[in-house]
């Protein structure tokens, strides 16, 4: 997003949004990309149709199995101040599972995770910490060693 494209007050609010302070600077290395197992973790408030949408600023997460079809995925993010037309036209704009599957088929990445995860990005990140660490545990069980984090 080019903040200069927004009205000044809106750009200022986004630029100055409070961010958490972290005491550590983690950095994990890993194998070449062609050997990595990749998962998507989204903060778009994505839910599989039939599951409870995110309400307000829920700190928990939803599981999106790799078998989820494009017509099963809904976006329940609380904010209405971002574009939804892109997601409406093509889920890969927010959740690029088709792209990752094609990359895995071509050998560009090792494989795609069995499950992906979504949070509600408007929630205070500190409240999401426990849930994020829980998701990391699930990713480890699935032998995921690369996560692409997708906002809206």
């Amino acid at each position: 997003m080019r903040l200069g494209d927004l009205p000044a007050a809106m750009a200022k609010r986004l630029a100055e949004l409070e961010c958490p302070e972290f005491a550590t600077r983690p950095w994990v290395a890993g194998p070449p990309l062609a050997e990595r197992r990749v998962a998507i973790v989204s903060s778009a408030g994505l839910v599989v149709r039939g599951e409870k949408p995110f309400r307000g600023r829920d700190p928990d997460y939803r599981v999106i199995p790799a078998t989820t079809r494009p017509d099963q995925l809904l976006l329940s993010h609380i904010s209405i101040n971002f574009d939804r037309n892109g997601f409406q036209e093509d889920w890969n704009v927010v959740f690029p599972l088709d792209r990752l599957n094609a990359m895995a088929a071509a050998g560009e990445i090792g494989s795609v995770a069995a499950a992906h995860y979504s949070f509600m990005g408007a929630t205070d990140p500190v409240q999401m910490e426990t849930h994020a660490r829980e998701v990391a545990g699930l990713l480890r069980q699935d032998k995921v060693d690369a996560v692409i984090l997708s906002p809206v």
Partner: peptide, 27 residues
Amino acid sequence: MSALGHYIEEEGIATVAIGLIRPQIEN
């Protein structure tokens, strides 16, 4: 989003975040 990356990387999994608002990434 970047904060989630911090927690997950601390748990031992490499992450890369797509960021839409550069000042928020930097902070």
